[in-house]
Simulated assay, not measured.
Amino acid sequence: MNEDDVAVARTIRHSPVMLTGSQIKTLRTWARIETQDELGRRAGMSRATVARAEKMGDKLPDHLSVANMISIVKVFEQAGAQFYLPQGEALEQGVHIYYPPRPYPLPALEPKEEPSG
């Protein structure tokens, strides 16, 4: 474990669920929260805080307080996401996320024009 990992562990050790920047961005899209500003408003933080978290990619956003991470997780739980740890797996492997299907209206198909010939 390097110094960065130790710093992250100190920040997040009491949080029930930690999400990477990529997971936050993916969940935001899934929850149909269109902007970082909207997620920030719902979670009680600034757009800049959400943007910085999403920019972390596959790393944990170490700048987020435990309270901020919990607020983000609660927004996604309210949208229907479920976070779980399969029996026998360690937290260091990460939590699993279940995204219930979201019905998206399918666009009407345009009829294909037959080539004249």
Rank of each mutant, 00 (worst) to 15 (best):
T26H: 01
D37G: 12
M45C: 14
S22R: 04
R42K: 14
L109A: 15
S65A: 11
I70V: 14
G57D: 12
L39S: 07
P115I: 05
V6R: 13
E3I: 06
V17W: 03
K55F: 06
D5Q: 14
S15T: 08
R41P: 00
A51S: 15
M56F: 00
D58M: 08
E34C: 00
I72K: 01
P111G: 04
A48I: 06
P107T: 03
R32A: 12
R102V: 14
P111Y: 05
I97Q: 13
H14N: 14
P105S: 13
G117K: 02
G21T: 01
R102T: 07
Y84P: 10
R47T: 06
T26M: 07
E114H: 05
S46W: 03
V8E: 03
R32N: 14
I72N: 02
T20W: 05
V17M: 05
M69Y: 07
E110H: 08
P86A: 15
A7R: 08
A90Q: 15
Y98T: 06
L85R: 15
Q36E: 15
H96L: 13
T49G: 09
E34A: 13
D37E: 14
Q93K: 15
A9P: 00
K59R: 11
D5Y: 05
M45W: 08
P115S: 07
R47M: 13
R28H: 02
D62W: 02
T11I: 10
A7Q: 09
S65H: 08
G94P: 12
T11R: 12
H14S: 11
G57V: 06
G40E: 08
L19P: 04
P103A: 07
M18V: 04
P100M: 11
T26Y: 01
H63I: 05
A108G: 08
L39A: 10
H63C: 02
G94M: 14
P115Y: 00
L91C: 05
G94N: 14
S116R: 03
G117R: 06
P61S: 05
A108Y: 08
H14V: 04
